[in-house]
Simulated assay, not measured.
Amino acid sequence: MLLVFNFNWFEFELLCFKFGFCRCFYAQEFWKIGIMDEVVSNTRRWEDLDTDILVKIFQLFDIFELTSGVAHVCSAWRTACCDPLRWKTLDLSMLRSNFIKIPLEPFVYVDERSDKILTRLLKISLSLSRESIVTLIFHFNLYVSDDMLTYTAERSPQLKRLVLPAWNRIKRTGMCKAIRSWKKLESLTMPSIANPPYFLEEIATHCENFSELKIMGPCDIFFASTLAAFVPKLRVLSLRCTTLYRDVLILILDSLKHLEVLNISHCVLMEGLPPPQYKRIITEIDPIVRQKASRLREFITCMEDSCIICQRTRTDEGIVRWYKYEEGFWKEDEVNSLAL
């Protein structure tokens, strides 16, 4: 029986290069099936690879591999490394700071080596990306400094989606300066913040297309009021895995008239009471809240005792300690556009 193979030399190079296959071994196998002559006759140098093929190869690389010197091999490789398709997303979610907690502001001390690694990655990535980055993802335990954040913002003006790191080392001036560079920002995932007005006011002033927000932490009445004041046209809001008071929920539903999607999955829902009780846990959504939420396209809830994520929120007393759980747990969201 004659076997006919539609052999593509570029595909062979792609497999060998990315996955570390031994070319000699596979050459022997190809010889056995009668196509080695074609392979030998079509042998080409790496720099002769079609740019589109190189781009596909480099899209398989993580940020550490891509910034390890690949762009310095030759001009063809640098061109492929700088292709906008490769830099639509800069994902630093695998990078965490090596830090210890301290009693004084900024309440963390970050190891110098961690800062150097991050600085190097940012400088190389932002140079190669040539302002093509649309999505920027930081790990929640990556403690970025003011200088790092503003440096990044100035070199990513096309940014539409941002997943912010921890706030500790970012000052008000640095954050405001960064937001002013991200005029096309549409979606934001952020830790909770004690003083939200200045931050949301900057977004309201400079990011006219802003429409999606995820808060990884408590949202109190002050925060909800600030949302209503500065981003009343918000369409998507996720408050999952936190403590949420009923009056805050009602304020959000009443004030954010353009809201289409609200996610309060796995929240500990509370109701404030007069002394001596002060508060109590609500075990199900009451009819008033459901009626107000009926106008939404999606009102996503989960308060099941059998739900593992709900159990985690309750165990952590309404403030999930993301670091305690499997890597990637913090990236989840029931709203597809906010999941990572």
Rank of each mutant, 00 (worst) to 15 (best):
L2G: 00
E13L: 14
E13Q: 10
F17C: 01
F19E: 15
F21I: 09
R23C: 04
G34D: 03
I35A: 05
W46C: 05
D48G: 05
D50C: 12
I53F: 08
I57E: 06
Q59Y: 07
F64D: 14
E65A: 10
L66Y: 00
V73R: 03
S75A: 03
C81K: 13
P84Q: 04
S93E: 02
F99S: 13
V108D: 10
V110E: 03
E112K: 02
S114G: 07
S125T: 09
E131T: 12
E131R: 10
S132Q: 10
S132A: 15
I133P: 14
T135A: 05
T135H: 13
N141A: 03
Y143L: 09
Y151D: 14
Y151G: 07
T152K: 04
S156E: 01
P157I: 06
V163Q: 12
L188I: 09
N195T: 14
P197N: 03
F199C: 11
F199P: 00
L200W: 05
L200D: 00
E202K: 06
N209P: 00
S211I: 10
M216P: 00
M216S: 11
I221M: 09
F222D: 13
S225D: 07
T226A: 11
T226V: 11
L234V: 12
R235N: 08
S238N: 15
L239Y: 03
C241M: 08
L256W: 07
H258I: 00
L269V: 14
P274E: 08
Q277F: 05
R280T: 12
I281G: 00
T283Y: 13
I285S: 06
P287W: 13
R290T: 02
K292D: 04
A293M: 02
R295M: 13
R295K: 15
I309T: 14
R312S: 08
R314K: 12
T315F: 06
T315P: 00
D316C: 11
E317R: 14
E317Y: 13
W322G: 07
Y323A: 12
E326W: 08
E332S: 10
N336I: 13
L338K: 02
